[in-house]
Simulated scan of single mutants.
Amino acid sequence: MFILKRQDVEISSIQHPKQKQKIPILTYQGQTFRLLNVFSGNQQEEARAFWRDLTDNHGKVCVLLEEPERYSVWGKVILEQLETEAAPDASFLTYTKACLLLLQTVYLDVEDLLGGRQAGLFEKDLTDVFQQWHFPQADSPKAVQQLLTADPLATVQMPTWEEHHLITLLQELYRLGKEYFGNANFADGVKDILQDMPANEQAQFMKWLNQSPLGQLWR
């Protein structure tokens, strides 16, 4: 429906009426849209294809937001409709655990290879990402520190992230990793990083990962 620039829209967040999280909302000419998917800056074709598929084949009213470092697709929503939404898919708890293991591994590699100062800068950059994209339970430096240190496989209370949060996290983590290390070697060997997860959860996550454009980045 629309291809817009950042200056054309207003982005805010609202409290989900049934879930303990805030969700990003884009407003354009009095209409509201909910974030559906995020693509990195070099995935313009994938973003446009996703947007066209929703509009042409599924009859959705959508916005494609073009920014210098990312593309995002937003679907029209009537805020009152959120009241009828079901709870998030339990499989995303598994994906969240895996994403946090990848996050912690990259962070520890930065600390071990580049030193404490660079690790501190990395943590700050990560906090900026979480705040910019309204990640639930990651809106403060203390919360981010908890995510970087608590064992995801032993933590009972996991952040309630949806698919677009996880996609954004892995895309931004890949971008930051390349900036800090100067190459993408850190994104190899995902299965080795996840070896402590139950085999069925590893397989579930790898299937999800490889079905998305992220599978081209994290291997």
Rank of each mutant, 00 (worst) to 15 (best):
M1K: 10
F2A: 10
F2Q: 14
D8W: 05
D8M: 04
E10D: 07
I11P: 01
I14P: 00
Q15E: 06
P17N: 02
P17F: 06
K18C: 07
Q19I: 12
K22T: 10
I23E: 07
P24H: 07
T27R: 15
Q29K: 15
F33A: 07
L35Q: 12
L36H: 09
N37D: 01
F39T: 06
G41R: 09
Q43M: 10
Q44G: 09
E45K: 15
R48N: 03
R48Y: 13
R48Q: 15
R48E: 14
A49F: 04
F50L: 02
F50P: 03
R52A: 10
R52V: 09
L54T: 03
D56H: 13
H58R: 14
G59D: 03
K60H: 09
K60Q: 14
V61D: 15
C62E: 12
L64I: 00
L65Y: 08
L65M: 11
R70S: 13
W74C: 04
W74V: 06
K76L: 13
V77N: 01
V77Q: 13
L82Q: 05
L82D: 02
E85T: 10
A87M: 11
P88V: 01
P88W: 06
S91N: 12
F92G: 01
L93N: 08
T96M: 08
L101M: 14
L102E: 10
T105M: 02
Y107R: 05
Y107C: 02
L108Y: 04
D109T: 08
E111A: 10
E111T: 03
L113H: 11
L114S: 05
R117P: 00
Q118I: 00
G120Q: 12
F122A: 06
L126H: 07
D128A: 14
F130Q: 03
Q132T: 15
Q132R: 15
P136G: 04
A138S: 10
S140M: 08
S140H: 05
P141T: 05
K142T: 07
K142R: 13
A143S: 14
V144F: 08
V144R: 11
Q146I: 03
Q146E: 11
Q146F: 07
L147V: 04
L148Q: 05
A150G: 00
T155A: 14
T155P: 00
V156F: 02
M158V: 00
P159H: 07
E162Y: 01
E163M: 05
H164Q: 13
I167H: 02
Q171F: 12
L173E: 01
Y174F: 13
L176G: 05
G177Y: 06
E179Q: 15
A184K: 09
N185L: 12
D188T: 07
G189F: 01
V190K: 08
K191R: 14
K191T: 11
I193A: 11
L194C: 04
P198Q: 02
P198G: 03
A199I: 11
Q204D: 12
Q204A: 14
K207W: 06
W208C: 07
W208T: 03
S212K: 12
P213R: 00
Q216D: 12
